[in-house]
Structures are given as C-alpha cells and as structure tokens.
C-alpha cells in the first residue's frame, strides 16, 4: 500500500520536472525561465524523493536531509543567477516593464558621478554597469 502511494507521489514529482523543462524551453528570457525552473524543480524533487522514501523507509533519513538541502539551496542559487541575468540585461534582451532595480542603479550612478564632478574638475565617464 505504502509502496503504491510512494510510486504515485514520485510520478507527480516527475510531472513537475517535465513542467519545469517545458517552462525552460517555452519562456522567452532567462529570468522567466528561472521562474519555471526553480519552483517546479523544488516541489518536483520534494515529491519525487518523498515517494522514494515511502517505498523504502530505510532511505528516509538521508532523503529528508536531501530535501532540506534542496529547499535551502535552490533559492540561493537562483538568486545568484538572477543577479547575473540582471547584470547582463541589455545584452540578453530582458524585457521588463517596471525595472525598479535598473532605476535605482541609474540613480546611484548619477549621484556618484555628480559628486565626483564636484570633487575633481575633470568629468569622469560613467562606467557603472558595463554588462
């Protein structure tokens, strides 16, 4: 009984893996691909591994560690990737209608260059985010 429940849980998990892969293929740019890739693989691996744990209860200890590890690290790696994608936003053609982060960076750059001009006579060229 437990084995059948576990097998169907694994099947549900692998369905989320397939969703993540379709999302990776269909979404138009890197940040949107990340939306599908991160979330669906997290829940997919939780369900897939829990299903295996139900089929073999003696695996359950290590599987819980693996699940905790994936839930804790997956957002971190996707955050690092999102920052990298945002730094490259002009080259890779990200389309975002409000981009509050780019506005904040532009403001900081303007402030830095105006204070630099005030400090020294010769104007400094802006080399803020050269993608």
């Amino acid at each position: 009984m437990l084995a059948i429940v576990g097998a169907f849980l694994s099947l549900l998990g692998s369905a989320f893996f397939v969703l993540a892969a379709i999302g990776l293929l269909r979404m138009p740019d890197a940040l949107n691909r990340m939306q599908a890739g991160t979330k669906a693989t997290t829940l997919g691996s939780i369900l897939f591994l829990l299903g295996i744990g139900l089929m073999r209860p003696d695996f359950l200890g290590r599987i819980i560690i693996l699940i905790l590890f994936i839930v804790l690290t997956n957002p971190v790696s996707s955050n690092a990737l999102a920052r990298a994608a945002h730094a490259w936003r002009d080259r890779i053609g990200l389309k975002m209608t409000p981009d509050a982060l780019a506005e904040a960076e532009a403001e900081a750059a303007a402030l830095a260059s105006s204070t630099a001009e005030a400090a020294s006579a010769k104007p400094t060229s802006e080399v803020q985010h050269d993608a």
């Binding site: 969703l19 379709i22 138009p28 939306q35 975002m96 409000p98 509050a100």
Partner: peptide, 17 residues
C-alpha cells in the same frame, strides 16, 4: 507555473518591483 507554462499564449507581463 503549470498554468502559465501550459497556456498556449504564455500569459506573462514580467517586471522588477
């Protein structure tokens, strides 16, 4: 995610807030 990925028109309007 499942809804957006499987929808034939990809209903997304991305932005950073």
């Amino acid at each position: 995610v499942a809804f957006r990925v499987l929808h034939p028109k990809l209903p997304i309007a991305p932005g950073i807030v």
